[in-house]
């Protein structure tokens, strides 16, 4: 059976004046129904670019290679008509920064109804209105508030509206790009609860992008850690968060200590240095310049993503062990 989402050797680079700028380099990833997969990484590691390719929404100056299969069909090569039919009906996106991702001068009901009317033109106005009301109730906003404008809602409520909108056409796959960034911690927890509840109830597949590994560990079944455009670690959420194998995954896990985890207090937190300049990547492992465990061999070749005990990691030390 086809996977809900399958990324196959996906590479994206941006055309710039200084030559192509790689953002995503050879990512393979699979999301199945009822499964929540997370992608973690620092800003600039290519995770948002990756999310945008799922519905072929990448900027015009991006060059994409590989395959993005949604329910078995390649999004990157299909015709515009097929693509428009697929967008939102089969896969939808919860964008980051709901304030800017919602049209500021349209009522939220109009914005939620828009994709429904587009993809299910047979529905009567009353049916659409009823569906919008249900959707709002489903994300915890009273249907009576459907006539407000985005600026009249709080940040958390706006994010709820975004989620309701993503559910509007009952898609099988939802991509959530930093869904909780810019929300305070309490609201963040509520939104995460909402998301995992919905995934469980509706049986959809979900791809969540976040820089915050602790957010992902709460809701995800599997997590992939990206660094400099590549997946460097991939495994169950528990494995990646509790016992990360790749030194970068370790550093990322330590950056977000969980309350009540005594180990986190003693581990050195933080990571020195910046991600590599994509125009001039280091010769071997891209993480080598920042790695505290680097050896000479790290500078020779980029280590491949290897299977080790039910998970994958791209570090020569892990492979050797």
């Amino acid at each position: 059976m086809d996977h809900l989402l399958e990324l196959d050797g996906l590479s994206v680079s941006y055309r710039t004046a200084d030559g192509p700028l790689p953002a995503v380099r050879g990512v393979d990833l699979v999301v199945d129904a009822g499964e929540v997969v997370g992608i973690a990484g620092e800003s600039g590691c290519g995770k948002s670019t990756l999310a945008s390719t799922v519905l072929r929404l990448q900027p015009k100056d991006a060059v994409v290679e590989g395959e993005v299969l949604v329910a078995g069909r390649d999004v990157l090569t299909m015709g515009w008509g097929d693509l428009r039919a697929l967008r939102w009906a089969e896969a939808s996106i919860v964008f980051q920064g709901a304030l800017h991702s919602l049209n500021p001068v349209r009522r939220i009901e109009t914005q939620i109804a828009e994709p429904i009317q587009l993809h299910e033109p047979g529905l009567s106005t009353a049916e659409v209105t009823a569906r919008v009301g249900e959707l709002l109730e489903q994300v915890g906003i009273p249907a009576a508030r459907s006539r407000v404008y985005p600026h009249q809602l709080s940040g958390g409520q706006r994010q709820r509206v975004m989620i309701a909108m993503a559910l509007a056409c009952r898609p099988q796959l939802i991509v959530a790009d930093e869904p909780t960034t810019a929300l305070d911690v309490m609201v963040q927890a509520q939104i995460l609860d909402l998301i995992s509840g919905l995934v469980k109830d509706l049986g959809v597949g979900m791809l969540i992008i976040s820089h915050d590994l602790s957010v992902l560990s709460d809701v995800c079944d599997r997590v992939a850690v990206m660094y400099a455009g590549r997946v460097v670690e991939c495994g169950s959420a528990e494995q990646v968060f509790r016992a990360p194998a790749h030194p970068y995954a370790k550093a990322l896990a330590q950056a977000f200590p969980r309350v009540g985890d005594p180990a986190a207090r003693y581990a050195p937190a933080g990571l020195a240095g910046d991600p590599p300049d994509p125009h001039a990547p280091p010769p071997g492992c891209t993480f080598e310049p920042r790695c505290t465990l680097a050896v000479d061999a790290c500078r020779e070749a980029e280590p491949p993503l290897l299977d080790i005990g039910g998970r994958q990691s791209a570090c020569i030390r892990v492979g050797a062990a």
Binding site: W88, I93, N103, V105, P115
Partner: peptide
Amino acid sequence: GENYLTTARAKGLRDVEVRRRHAVPNALL
């Protein structure tokens, strides 16, 4: 440059519709 236009495109709207329904009315303000 605004993100809500990406949202509109993601919903499956044609570029013409994105322009007519979202970008132009908002730019007229």
